[in-house]
Amino acid sequence: MSQTVHSSGEHQPDENRRDFLTLATTAVGAVGVGCALLPFVDSMNPSKDVLALASVEVNLANIPVGQAIKVMWRGKPVFIRHRTEREINEAEDVALNELVDPQTDDARVEKKEWLVVVGVCTHLGCIPMGTATGETRGDYDGWYCPCHGSHYDTSGRIRRGPAPLNLVVPEYEFLTDTSVRIG
């Protein structure tokens, strides 16, 4: 190699330059490795076809007052209940200080007659009973989770049992009076 001869005088600054160069190269290389890993991490995020199905439109015209349906949304059941006058009153007449997770009924519905909640118990993820006609609705006329005995009311709020939170209200909007888009 041509540059094997170096006078000892210029050795010192050269050493520093090498250190800087090595450091800079290490930094650039580390950035490169980091960037190279990002696509792999991102590939585990929901893919485009999954995201395309992330919202569902539900026709409500066929649900009589007093009944509820289950629809699948993002792999989980969503309960849609067409509430009776009595159920609406029950939900609205509760004093907030009686609630485990205080929330007014107003804050949980878009239209009073329709309650839309994710049907997953906030305790450990079981599906509460009470949607189908004839199933037990628990002590508060809403839902009852058979796994560990959580009782939900007609607004889907937790009233008794180990669950810490009310049933989650998903993002939804009414497209018409009888159709709703969840997600």
Binding site: N45, K48, D49
Partner: peptide
């Protein structure tokens, strides 16, 4: 084809 079209960076991998 789903990997190529829908999975994030699937085409790259």
């Amino acid at each position: 084809e789903r990997i190529m079209r829908d999975v994030n960076y699937g085409w790259l991998i």
